[in-house]
Amino acid sequence: MKTAITSTGNMGSSLVDSRFGRCAWFVIYDSQSGSSEFIPNPYAHAEEEAGAESVKLLISRKVERIISGEFGIKIKPMLDINKIQMIVITGKEKTIDDIIGMLSDKS
């Protein structure tokens, strides 16, 4: 299963970006192969429709789960209809390595 995580930078030590549509980078983690891929968000500075375009990008990558800090009002119905799970992180800020560690932990 592929999981997208919104990131502020392109390293494992980067923090999770709390915004979804305008995050700096997306990390796509594949739980089957254990690989992770960093892709820059082309819509980070878009004037409008950043969230919707980001959703389309992630759908084309066959992502089934998105981890972020916040999802906008236009995004939730789009993700619901495409059956993509949303996970909202709260509290202490976590790094990408922390999240991937939690996801890959099989126990």
Partner: peptide, 10 residues
């Protein structure tokens, strides 16, 4: 456990 919120669309 981790303080996160999630939905289950399936």
């Amino acid at each position: 456990g981790c303080g996160s919120y999630f939905n289950d669309p399936h």
